[in-house]
């Protein structure tokens, strides 16, 4: 595809909106202290907590999200649009609203509070729950799109040859979906890593338990903006590397 020339200035303007803030962030990083700042005990604790919780949230989002995408695909089309909108709600919800919703569901006074509200409150699991809530739609959306692009011919052939549904799923459909699953997982991980609003509202903020890197950045910003910028840069780098390596927009496959 050859794009018309007049797109160029618009692209430049759009890119500037994204790039200038990143440059601004980099301009505030105290470079001589960068390494000591990002390897300080508080920073390492928060980064390690963020990596662990985001990994757990990604795993949960895959375990829940892949089956949701399959079920969506099987629904009659008039219900599918509505069901898809409900599942994708966390994508468009302000995170603080997500946090409140989680609080009213899984908080100590929430709907499911008697079951495990007290067990989850202010623990690392509360962070994982908040991150899974915001990350799950990315998995569903990626696999939903890939499933819609498949003709289902191979599956039909396998079924006529006597393969069970589980066998068709594990030997044909899932292997074909690997790129979409990888894309969904990377986006889910990146979203979980950046989660702030729902975590703050629902999980609290305690070093080593619930204070993830974004929460530490927000807290540090008050007293030491340079340290906050240094730590922010780490998250920017992790995001760029992760998305570059693993994100491939889904292609049409048969």
């Amino acid at each position: 595809m050859t794009a018309p020339r007049w797109l160029l200035p618009l692209a430049g303007g759009g890119a500037l909106i994204v790039l200038l803030p990143l440059v601004g962030l980099a301009s505030r990083v105290p470079w001589s202290d960068w390494w000591p700042l990002v390897t300080s005990e508080a920073a390492l604790t928060a980064l390690s907590l963020s990596l662990r919780t985001a990994s757990a949230a990604t795993a949960l989002a895959l375990v829940g999200g892949i089956p949701i995408a399959f079920v969506l695909h099987e629904l009659p089309s008039r219900w599918r649009a509505l069901a898809r909108a409900v599942v994708l709600i966390p994508l468009v919800l302000p995170p603080v609203v997500g946090g409140l919703a989680l609080l009213f569901a899984f908080g100590r006074q929430g709907l499911a509070g008697d079951m495990f509200g007290s067990a989850v409150a202010f623990t690392t699991w509360a962070v994982v729950l908040a991150q899974t809530f915001v990350a799950l739609p990315f998995v569903v959306a990626a696999i939903d799109a890939a499933l819609a692009a498949r003709s289902g011919r191979l599956e039909a052939v396998a079924a006529t040859l006597g393969a069970s549904r589980t066998r068709v799923l594990t030997t044909i459909t899932l292997p074909a979906l690997v790129p979409a699953i990888a894309t969904g997982a990377v986006l889910a991980f990146a979203r979980a890593l950046g989660e702030f609003g729902a975590t703050l509202t629902f999980a609290g903020s305690l070093e080593g338990v619930t204070r993830t890197a974004p929460l530490l950045i927000y807290l540090t910003r008050e007293t030491d903006p340079g340290a906050a910028a240094a730590l922010s840069l780490v998250l920017v780098l992790v995001a760029i590397i992760g998305v570059t390596v693993a994100y491939r927009p889904a292609k049409a496959v048969s």
Binding site: L103, F122, L200, G204, S205, L206, E207, L215, Y218
Partner: peptide, 16 residues
Amino acid sequence: DTEELSVADVLAKVSS
């Protein structure tokens, strides 16, 4: 159990 970022956050945790 939590060290909040502002007194408003502490109030929100207690009132809820």
